[in-house]
Simulated assay, not measured.
Amino acid sequence: MDFKTLCIHGNEVKYDDTGSIIVPIFQTATFAHPGVGQSTGYDYSRVQNPTREHLEKTIARLESGFDAMAFSSGMAAITALMEMFSPGDHIIASDDLYGGSHRLFYNISAKNGLTFDLVNTSDVSQIESYIRPQTKALFIETPTNPMMQVTDIALVSRIAKSRNLLLIVDNTFLTPYFQKPIELGADIVIHSGTKYLGGHNDTLAGFLVVANDQLAERLRFIYKTTGACLSPFDSWLLIRGIKTLAVRMERQQENAYQLAQWLSRHSKVKKVYFVGLATHPDYEVSKRQSTGFGAMISFEVRDEETVKDVLERVALIQYAESLGGVESLITYPVMQTHADVPEEQREAKGINGRLLRLSVGLEAVEDLIADLEQALGV
């Protein structure tokens, strides 16, 4: 079945007999038992709920996974994932991580005995040099947030399998429409469902998608025990959002490509980070492992005064922290998404006071360009 069709009909299980085209919102905390030792298949909504199950089965099919778990946020999903590991375990992660992941690793997971090394995972030799007996997993974002570095998933998968390590891939920026990490060898895929999967800036969600039954069993136990499951109503919002995922991703990517080209020519813009530009150093890797480039752009302007001008002058584009929705949003990483990353580490990656991140939405690209043009000035 084609991906576009799966977005709409990803789970064909019927949960009621009314003929409803849309899966109902089963807004219940618990379910009655038909008799002693008997179950309808649903007992308590923290463990499973029909609306959430519909969503999870759809996501699993879209990602070519064995199972998927829907969480109350992307960070809730990563927090549960960290419970797979024990004190003393070591994880190698991309050094250009979403700031929330960095904050979790070094303020919560480290307190619980886990250790981390952050490396440029687009350079495979760096990964290999940091592997040690205690290493249990490789955790990569690709493209990374906000510097848009790309990691060769299939190549890193071969390293992980040769060393008996889990390969975990955050696929939030590209979604399964443009990139399928499990088909490239990943064991676990992460999503902030708040972003492109939901697509409308109206709810929080997170996902873990696993490649096999053993991982599903381990994470399902953690999931029901820690309890950060997605509510029935929010599950329904994600189901609705996913129906238009394919058409949204295509249009947003088209807009982003035109904006990236325009920004590249502007006198006040020093550098543009967009995977879809042929000048991007990882362009060929992206073409090999993905069917598209997404709609995220970071760009560096010539001074911090220009940053202030842009953030205070944009009118159509909104200065807000998030991404992936139909509305275009602009973010200032050093004060928002990456404020908790130590300054020395930020600067080393190019996340400086002149960097802006743009999530390109569905507005007419001519209007977006006009808005940036007046905000940047001459």
Rank of each mutant, 00 (worst) to 15 (best):
F3A: 06
K4M: 04
T5Y: 00
C7M: 02
I8W: 02
I8M: 05
G10K: 05
N11V: 00
K14E: 11
I21W: 01
I22H: 00
V23Q: 04
F26H: 14
P34V: 05
G37D: 02
Y42V: 03
Y44R: 06
S45N: 08
S45Y: 00
R46D: 02
Q48H: 11
N49R: 10
N49Q: 10
P50D: 02
R52V: 14
K57I: 01
A68E: 01
G74Q: 09
M75R: 06
A77K: 05
I91H: 01
I92V: 12
A93L: 11
D96W: 08
G99E: 05
G100M: 07
S101H: 06
S101Y: 04
N107P: 01
N107C: 08
N107L: 09
A110E: 09
A110V: 01
K111Q: 14
G113R: 12
L114T: 13
L114A: 09
L114P: 01
D117G: 05
N120R: 09
D123W: 02
S125G: 07
T142Q: 11
T144F: 15
P146R: 14
Q149E: 12
D152K: 05
I153L: 08
R158H: 08
K161I: 03
N164V: 06
L166V: 06
L167F: 01
L167V: 02
D170W: 04
T172W: 11
L174P: 01
P176T: 04
E183A: 13
L184I: 03
G185C: 09
A186D: 11
I188L: 13
I190P: 00
H191F: 15
F207Y: 09
L208W: 00
V210M: 10
D213I: 07
Q214T: 05
A216S: 15
K224Y: 05
A228E: 00
G241P: 09
E250Y: 07
Q253F: 00
E254I: 08
Q261V: 03
R265I: 07
K268L: 15
V269G: 13
K270H: 02
K271S: 15
L277N: 10
L277Y: 11
A278E: 15
P281Y: 10
E284R: 13
T291V: 15
E300F: 12
V301W: 12
R302W: 00
D303M: 08
D303L: 12
D303S: 13
E304S: 13
T306F: 04
E312D: 06
V314W: 00
V314K: 03
A315H: 07
L316N: 06
Q318N: 09
L323H: 11
Q336T: 05
Q336H: 08
A339E: 13
V341P: 11
R354F: 04
L356N: 04
R357G: 06
R357W: 08
L358V: 04
G361F: 03
E363F: 06
A370N: 14
Q374K: 13
Q374G: 03
A375C: 08
